[in-house]
Design a protein around this nucleic acid. Structure first.
Length: 501
RNA sequence: GGUCAUGUGGCCGAGCGGUGAGGCACAGGUCUGCAAAACCUUAUACGGCGGUUCAAAUCCGUCCAUGACCUCCA
């Protein structure tokens, strides 16, 4: 069964066929680094990281481009009021590139903690001003943009009239019809400069107090919101590439405008497959700046937010996101995250035990039905992922396998119930999926050997005490370690293991 | 107002025409010096009302509720 993806452009699941297999070009809209990333931002980055990893697993050579928006209309978060009071303070406080660097660093730090792979190219908008200006010039030359007071606007109506004839009307992605839009847009600045309300900015004239500005044929200004993605995707992935991804809230207007710009310049719809993840909600509402309900990633990792009852590890968040399908909304709550935390721990411990257990199964399976069941559960991993990346179903199968693994560990089931090939398949595929595709890793930071050694010593002492039936000593060791956050667990057959809480 | 989604058990979430996905919580049991963990078992469900069908959580209609987007937002 080949990979199928839901294409927002056609509104159906389609078989994924790269333009130049085995090469795949994927562009994903990255962060605007004018402020800190929050939980809502984490979803697209984790979603597309898993998609990237899965494409690699399938053997594709992927060029993954994820931009950083570091140009545009910037104000430091929460400082708006102050800015108005004292422009001097702004000048002292905000060197634009300093601000951008600060939030870019913070963003990269969060991505690493999530164990997201680095994209192949991470271009910045400020690094591609020239490309953007060139693109705008081309659009003007073709007659689809006009200048007004040092700003340049895209002529949506002309585009729609001309390109509708070619089957590429404005609104092709979002399903909007231009005529329906005319009276529905809200009031914005400088609307009077535009010929039509639906026109959007390619280049904006910078007022005197604007902190980021560049020289252009139309005077000093800064690029419009949409043009950077068109310029950079064309530069690094070509006029036509395979996948364009981002959050659903970008479908209109951002991606719609991107399509219009690129189509004028390159005479092609830029991407074949448009993939969009849904939002993370909190109490049923989208998490976003405009709702004042954001939980920043730093707050999430440290637990320092009034809505949080505890800190959450990045892997808990990652697991939480993988438990739902990327096109559905995902509702945040402490209860839900705590559930994810426990589930992740159970999965990881079983997985970890399997890899270290040294079990190898029998030449012929002792329990044919179970052997078949395990094989089926593992084989379905690929099948589920090929059905538009259904990570939730893969996880469901994994938990059925966790029961089998733990039963073998507790010796309720003999390791010889499974055949050697099935055990090997289970080990390889679980590793491929848990670590390589889902990108999960132990919540515990890598410890040095000393701690291991100390714990082993305490475990030995406790074992001796238990043999002497000296439960005072054995309980003391267990209780005091528990107070320090190390949990000892007696196992069948006198073994002892520990986990960190 | 326009466009498009969604409504599943205490909570989070798959499924989208026919054996009740899965996780967490809860209850009972097994194991155990005790505990934890683990394992086993059980319960609770598809927004309301109609319709199609041998069969509907799944398809159709309608009503209700919620959400997203409508040029700052992942």
């Amino acid at each position: 069964m080949p990979l199928k993806v839901y294409n927002s452009l056609t509104r159906e699941k389609e078989t994924f066929t790269p333009i130049n297999a085995p090469y795949v070009g994927m562009y994903v809209c990255g962060p605007t680094v004018s402020g800190e990333s929050h939980l809502g931002h984490a979803r697209p980055f984790i979603t597309f990281d898993v998609i990237y990893r899965y494409l690699l697993y399938l053997g594709y050579k992927v060029r993954y481009v994820r931009n950083i928006t570091d140009a545009g209309h910037f104000e430091e978060e929460g400082r708006e009021a102050e800015d108005k009071i004292s422009k001097k303070a702004v000048l002292e406080k905000l060197e634009p590139m300093e601000l951008v660097q600060k939030y870019t660093n913070l963003y990269h730090w969060a991505m690493r903690r999530f164990n997201n792979l680095n994209p192949s190219i991470e271009p910045t908008a400020t690094g591609h001003i020239i490309e953007q200006i060139e693109m705008i010039k081309k659009i003007i030359a073709d007659g689809y943009a006009y200048e007004a007071n040092g700003s340049v606007y895209f002529d949506v109506e002309k585009y729609n009239t001309d390109f509708s004839k070619k089957g590429q009307p404005y609104g092709i992605l979002s399903g909007r019809i231009l005529e329906d839009q005319l009276d529905t847009t809200r009031e914005l600045d400088n609307q009077d400069e535009k010929r039509n309300k639906s026109d959007f900015a390619l280049w904006k004239h910078a007022p005197a107090e604007h902190i980021m500005r560049w020289q252009s044929p139309w005077g000093e200004g800064f690029p419009g919101w949409h043009i950077e993605c068109s310029a950079m995707s064309t530069k690094y992935l070509g006029e036509e590439f395979d996948i364009h991804g981002g959050g659903m809230d970008l479908v209109f207007p951002h991606h719609e405008c991107e399509i219009a710009q690129s189509t004028v310049c390159n005479h092609k719809t830029p991407a074949r497959y448009w993939l969009h993840n849904n939002m993370i909600t909190i109490n049923g509402k989208k998490m976003g700046k405009s709702y004042n309900n954001v939980i920043r990633l730093t707050e999430l990792f440290s637990g320092s937010h009034p809505a949080l009852t505890q800190a959450y590890h990045p892997m808990t968040i990652r697991f939480f996101i993988l438990q739902s399908h990327y096109r559905g909304t995902l509702d945040f709550s402490n209860e839900a995250l705590q559930a994810a935390e426990k589930a992740m721990k159970r999965l990881w411990e079983a997985y970890n035990w399997l890899q270290q257990s040294g079990i190898c199964g029998a030449d012929t399976a002792g329990d044919v039905a179970l052997d078949e069941k395990v094989k089926k559960l593992v084989d379905e991993f690929d099948e589920f992922m090929n059905d538009d990346f259904n990570t939730a179903k893969v996880l469901a199968n994994m938990f059925e396998l966790v029961s089998v693994i733990n039963s073998i560990k507790d010796k309720h089931i003999s390791a010889e119930s499974l055949s050697t090939t099935t055990v090997a398949l289970l080990q390889t595929q679980l590793k491929a999926y848990v670590e390589d595709i889902f990108g999960l890793q132990s919540e515990r930071s890598a410890d040095d050997g000393k701690l291991e050694g100390v714990l082993q010593l305490l475990i030995d002492i406790r074992k001796e005490a238990k043999t002497r039936k000296d439960f005072v000593t054995s309980d003391k060791i267990r209780n005091e370690l528990a107070a320090l956050g190390v949990q000892l667990k007696d196992e069948k057959g006198g073994g002892m293991s520990y986990t960190f809480s």
